[in-house]
């Protein structure tokens, strides 16, 4: 029972981090129908910002979240303006974005590899390898803090989307782009800002990832499939779905790792991807395309 509880705690903590990693991905898809395969490399960019702030001025990775978010958001806006905006009117836009974002990921990967080399890096704040022990149960501080911060950011995003005027405009655009335009929403601007917000979330996730996992530029290839399985389970474009999908799969993966074998734990993500695509392609909370 204790081991079950322990694994459950570890799975939930990691699940919230996964949730933050995919929240930007699902937001961008929901609003713009961009399957952003460059999202993981943007997370790596955020991790690099956080890493250098930690190394150069000793800034705690959690405190560096706003800076990492802003830097990656700015990068995202530039990418959107240069690559996506001009193609938005194309009929095959959504399909095209898969290739465009794949290419973008390769270019950013190449630049990062050239500048920083494919050396693995980790920020090591004091809590990165510390834990709270309650009897036989331990709660790793890095996972706990990052889980808490992730949940605060996600709740903040949900509140923003639900109650702010701009959030309502984003939701309207994501539900029906044409109707939103008809009622006066500046869809072009909403898309630009939404892409920026999605990238800011990637930057924030990167700051947290920097002390949970080792990272190096080409690490993002490993994350693409896992992140896609999380958002597909929850439903592409659904923030709630992405969060639930991330936590469920993280817990199940941890359980499989602990009680069957770690060799099978990664399989959980891919198996769920197959099953969901066969049984319910739009995912648990997926939205219908307009």
């Amino acid at each position: 029972m204790i081991e079950f509880l322990q694994v459950l705690i570890l799975g939930i903590c990691l699940g919230f981090v996964y949730a933050l990693m995919v929240s930007g991905l699902t937001l961008i898809f929901g609003v713009m129908r961009i399957v952003n395969l460059a999202h993981p490399i943007l997370i790596i960019c955020g991790a690099f910002v956080s890493y250098w702030l930690f190394i150069l001025i000793g800034l705690d990775p959690i405190l560096s979240i706003p800076i990492a978010g802003l830097v990656v958001a700015a990068l995202g806006v530039v990418i959107y303006k240069l690559i996506f905006e001009r193609n938005a009117a194309q009929q095959t836009y959504s399909e095209m974005t898969v290739l465009l974002t794949f290419g973008t990921a390769m270019v950013i990967d190449g630049i990062l590899s050239f500048v920083f080399h494919n050396t693995q890096r980790t920020t090591s704040p004091s809590y990165a390898t510390d834990a709270i022990f309650i009897g036989d149960i331990f709660i790793p501080l890095a996972q706990l803090y990052s889980g808490l911060v992730s949940s605060v950011i996600i709740v903040g995003l949900a509140v923003f989307l639900k109650y702010s005027d701009f959030g309502i405009a984003i939701r309207a655009t994501s539900q029906n782009r044409t109707s939103a335009e008809l009622v006066g929403v500046n869809v072009k601007f909403v898309c630009l800002i939404s892409f920026g917000i999605g990238c800011a979330l990637a930057g924030a996730a990167g700051a947290l990832v920097s002390f949970i996992f080792s990272f190096f530029p080409s690490r993002h290839w490993e994350w693409i499939a896992i992140m896609m399985s999380l958002v597909v389970l929850g439903g592409m474009g659904s923030l709630k779905g992405a969060v639930i999908g991330a936590i469920v799969l993280s817990v199940v993966s941890s359980m499989v790792g602990a009680f069957i074998s770690p060799a099978w734990s990664t399989m959980v993500f891919f198996l769920s991807l197959f099953l969901i695509l066969i049984i319910r392609p739009k995912g648990l909370f997926g939205i219908q395309s307009d």
Partner: peptide, 18 residues
């Protein structure tokens, strides 16, 4: 005795706990 998958494994704490 355990092995972890070649790529994509991230659940190190569960492994360490075992």
């Amino acid at each position: 005795h355990e092995q972890w998958p070649e790529e994509g494994f991230s659940d190190w704490l569960t492994l360490a706990n075992s």
